[in-house]
Structures are given as structure tokens and as C-alpha cells.
């Protein structure tokens, strides 16, 4: 089992929901991820910068306060602009204001370039497993970047 999956995680925008962030951090660590947690109130720039620095396999964005759509505009494009062509993008939380159809919300964020979109009611274990599998698959397809990842994360392993 490859335990060197590296993620950058954080709560985007002006959102200050810290409890879920701490629980998520703990859960990713339990599953053997190398976690770079930027905490609450992260900008797109913060997340992208950190992902470059640690050569992250994925950026896991959360948002609980309803502004996700505004905060995430252009995120995928900005990643590519900054050379993060291979990084997987995830978002989860309460992603809209009011009670909207989940399908509509999911489609919106998938269109914005996120690889998966998790709702607050999704099972946490399942979500983390999905991310784990996505990363493994990507590494299998792009073996070069795997090696890169490995080196980088070993250099900077934070736990």
C-alpha cells in the first residue's frame, strides 16, 4: 500500500469553520495521507502555492458557509496557470445557500473543474477512500509523476 499520498487541505474564502477542518485533518492522517492543512480562511493562492511547494497529489477544499461558488471561480484555471496540471481537485461541505438540488450543485462544481464534489451528508470514510483510489489510479497512469510526488513528499513529510 502506497502511503505517500500528499494532500493540501483548507477551508476556502472567509469561512472560519474550524471544527470540521480539524476532524478532516485527523481522518486523512489516520488513512496514511501526508496532510498539509492550511486551516480556515484560505485563498486560492494559499492553496495553490502550498500544493506547488509540497508537490501535492490533491487539493481538498472545504466550504461550510455558502460562498463556495464565489470563492472557487477560476480555481481550476489558476491551478493550470501555476503549473499544477496533474493535481486532483476536491471540494466538499455545504456548497450552496438554501436547500438546492444536490445534482445541480454537483454539476456546477464538476463543470468548474473539481474531480469530485462531496456533500456534507456524504460518508467521510467513503469520501476519503474515493480520494485515495483516485490518486492511486492517477499514479498508475502517470508513473513519472508518482516518483516526483514520492520524492517531494518524503522531503517534506509533515505528520
Amino acid at each position: 500500500m502506497n502511503t505517500d499520498n500528499t494532500i493540501v487541505m483548507g477551508v476556502i474564502g472567509q469561512d472560519c469553520h474550524s471544527v470540521g477542518n480539524k476532524v478532516l485533518h485527523f481522518a486523512f492522517k489516520e488513512k496514511g495521507f501526508v496532510v498539509h492543512n492550511l486551516g480556515v480562511q484560505c485563498s486560492q493562492e494559499d492553496l495553490i502555492k502550498a500544493a506547488k511547494e509540497v508537490n501535492a497529489d490533491a487539493i481538498v477544499v472545504s466550504s461550510l458557509y455558502g460562498h463556495a461558488e464565489l470563492d472557487c471561480r477560476g480555481f481550476s484555471t489558476n491551478c493550470i496557470k501555476n503549473g499544477l496540471n496533474n493535481v486532483l481537485l476536491y471540494i466538499g461541505g455545504n456548497l450552496s445557500i438554501g436547500k438546492s438540488e444536490w445534482e445541480v450543485i454537483e454539476r456546477k462544481f464538476l463543470k468548474m473543474g473539481f474531480n469530485r464534489v462531496f456533500s456534507a451528508s456524504d460518508d467521510l470514510e467513503w469520501a476519503i477512500d474515493s480520494i485515495y483510489n483516485d490518486i492511486s489510479l492517477r499514479k498508475f497512469k502517470h508513473p513519472v509523476s508518482v516518483t516526483e510526488n514520492k520524492d517531494a513528499s518524503q522531503k517534506r513529510k509533515v505528520n
Partner: peptide, 12 residues
Amino acid sequence: PHEAEGIPTLEA
């Protein structure tokens, strides 16, 4: 009663 769903509607 919608608390877990995010920002609640007027009805909730």
C-alpha cells in the same frame, strides 16, 4: 430542522 443541510430556508 434543516440545520445539517447548510443555511436553512425560511420554511425550515
